[in-house]
Design a binder for these strands. Structure first.
Length: 600
RNA sequence: GGCGAGGUAGCUCAGUCGGCAGAGCAGAGGACUCAUAAGCCUUGUGUCGCGGGUUCAAGUCCCGCCCUCGCCA
């Protein structure tokens, strides 16, 4: 009776590099959760991809004198490598720029249309006569109509901070060529959120008792205070997904409606790549399946309101249009455990000012588990948190290395030295031995419950507390005395300690997969705990796209207490983690805000 | 401007139904030595953002205000 668990992870925008705030906000919690669910034996499907359309990508392409496709491909490739190195085990990390995603998105659009949730309306938009095209708000500069600042952006004034109505800018000019745009009427499709409002309220009310209050209030509270109104879902652009209506093929789907559809399209692509094109039904049509959406707080309305609205609005028309199946309803989100934000040294992370710790840059000097540990211990689950380099050093040296790394090292090296590189044979276990094993084994329940309810920090704390318990046990048993007077007693102690760290290895493995895998080998196991990540190039009618995948076939780990056999041959141990030097605090701080080396 | 989250020990953060303010780290002291000078034992620490109110009792509930952050307009 394994459950089908869909792990949906925020889609990074393919126009900037990934920093630690992005990682702790959604990618890392999703991976911890997914690894745990796989260890428990559930059927996990973890999907995401690059959000490749939208104006930030075209703006960047125009600025760099290249094409949106080039910009997207370059960042996308970087994401695949970073995620692989961080051990983020996506079953599929793909892209929105695929033939499959185009088709799925257009099917959702048409299903919404069939069910009467779309309407058209006209609006004014800046148009460039010199270029013969409409200009997105981000392509416009002008004088702020609030404070008079001459270089206000189309969507916001950098001087007074006001969010601006682009069509009201004074003396507008095109950022492309400085020419003066003119207002022109254009027609768009709108999603009728007002009509869907009662169903969305129902959806949220059904989840009221277990959703985080920040997520619930930001969605339900907002709706109750201020009705939902229709939103334009098409744009006058050429980069993106064509509107699938005759006469509209010059227009594109607005990214905000199309990107979230990626959870569905990536699931479908995953099934196709596995040669079982219907396999995704288990997560999307089985009413017992549960879907978890790992996102940052800035994305709450899109995942708790708009995406459910699309799914409800598409109704059973999606299955008819997409694969001629009758009467299938797509599953709605089960839980949206949105995280708050992580700041850096007391200030907001800012890519453009290089006030950031970049994923790649970090990995050039430190290990992925070091990052995973600090980001989890400091994860913004209930409020904004702060990345502080001194705190990073302290936690690495005083918690990860001292409590866990040292425990492993002292037990392994003692066993290796005194019992000829083998797990010793114990005598009958004494009360203290039984007690510590039972204490550690409670972790499979307590840590598991924390992870299952997406309280990841609490789960990590609990696992670390258990590691400290094993340190106490060792001090009380003092095998370094026993070994001199009663080697059989020492053998019992070390056997017990080895079993304890063998169990702790599993409890910590969702958080620290690399070092757990290494410990697993030190303990003499040959089959790996986890499966393998790999990349692949897929060709379709839109061209080629690279994907990151996960093959669980070789994984042998399971969420249950150690069954370490005595006599098992150990491998020569080495420290799992590196103690960091105090100097790094100053040198890391000096990098912050410096002209950027990593934003290419 | 509307909606929401947060403000608690030197630092990072918990705090459920209102019932003597907590953890980890840092700091101080101690016994030990298997281990990455790690681990173990002992130990100090508070204007719970500010001002009112309700209550026998408020970090917690109510009102007002200040600051930080997010979404929306």
């Amino acid at each position: 009776m394994p459950s089908n668990i869909l792990v949906s992870v925020a889609w990074p925008y393919a126009n900037s590099l990934i920093h630690v705030g992005n990682i702790t906000g959604s990618y890392l919690p999703a991976d911890i959760f997914a690894r745990y669910q796989r260890l428990v034996g559930n059927n996990v499907l973890m999907v995401s991809g690059s959000d490749s359309h939208g104006t930030p990508v075209t703006v960047r392409a125009d600025a760099d004198g290249t094409t949106p496709l080039e910009v997207y491909s370059q960042f996308h490739t970087g994401f695949l490598e970073l995620f692989q190195r961080l051990g983020l085990t996506y079953d599929l990390f793909t892209s929105t720029h695929t033939e499959n995603h185009f088709k799925v998105s257009q099917s959702i659009f048409l299903a919404l249309e069939k069910n009467g949730y779309l309407y058209t309306d006209k609006q004014q938009q800046w148009y460039s006569p010199t270029q013969g095209r409409f200009l997105p708000d981000r392509y416009i500069e002008g004088t702020c109509y609030v404070c008079g600042y001459a270089n206000a952006r189309g969507d916001q004034c950098d001087q007074c901070g006001t969010l601006l109505e682009a069509t009201s800018l004074i003396n507008p000019r095109s950022k492309m060529d400085g020419s003066t745009p003119e207002l022109k009427e254009t027609e768009h499709f709108y999603l009728d959120l007002g009509k869907l409002q009662p169903a969305i309220i129902d959806f949220l009310r059904q989840r009221e008792d277990y959703w985080r209050s920040n997520v619930l209030r930001q969605s339900l509270g907002q709706i109750l205070a201020d009705e939902l109104h229709g939103r334009a879902i098409t744009r006058d652009l050429d980069w993106g997904i064509p509107v699938p209506i005759e006469g509209w093929d010059e227009k594109r789907l607005y990214v905000w409606i199309e990107a979230v559809i990626g959870y569905l399209s990536a699931s479908i692509e995953w099934a196709q790549l596995n040669g079982q094109p219907q396999a995704w039904h288990d997560w999307w049509y089985d009413s017992q399946a549960k879907s978890f959406y790992f996102i940052g707080k800035d994305n709450i309305p899109f995942h708790a309101v708009i995406w459910p609205a699309q799914l409800i609005g598409a109704g059973d028309w999606f299955s008819k249009l997409f694969e001629e199946l009758e009467g299938k309803q797509l599953n709605l989100p089960f839980y949206v455990p949105a995280n708050e934000f992580m700041n850096l040294e007391g200030k907001k992370i800012s890519g453009s000012r290089n006030w950031a710790v970049w994923g790649f840059d970090f990995l050039s000097r430190y290990e992925p588990d070091t990052l995973r540990y600090y980001l989890t211990a400091n994860m913004p689950e209930s409020k904004d948190t702060d990345w502080d380099w001194q705190d990073f050093l302290n936690r690495n040296n005083n918690e990860l290395v001292a409590t866990w790394g040292n425990l492993v090292n002292r037990v392994l090296s003692f066993a290796y030295k005194h019992w000829d590189g083998q797990v010793p044979s114990p005598g009958e276990l004494r009360p203290a031995d039984l007690e510590i094993l039972s204490t550690v084994e409670t972790g499979f329940q307590t840590v598991g419950d924390y992870i299952n309810s997406v309280n990841l920090r609490a789960g990590l704390n609990e696992a670390m507390r258990l590691a400290a318990e094993v340190n106490k046990y060792l001090d009380q048993s003092a095998p370094w005395f026993e070994v001199k007077t009663d080697k059989a007693a020492a053998a019992t102690t070390i056997f017990t300690a080895l079993k304890a760290i063998d169990s702790l290895k599993i409890l910590l493995s969702p958080y620290l997969p690399f070092s757990s895998e290494q410990l697993h080998k030190f303990l003499g196991y040959t089959a790996p705990l986890f499966g393998e990540q790999f990349t692949e190039t897929i060709t379709d009618n839109l061209g080629e796209h690279d994907v990151l995948r996960y093959n669980p076939a070789a994984a042998s780990g399971s969420w249950e207490p150690s069954r370490l056999p005595s006599g098992q041959k150990l491998r020569e141990p080495a420290p799992l983690f590196r103690k960091l030097d105090d100097d790094i605090v100053a040198s890391e701080r000096s990098r912050l805000g410096q002209p950027d080396i990593s934003q290419e």
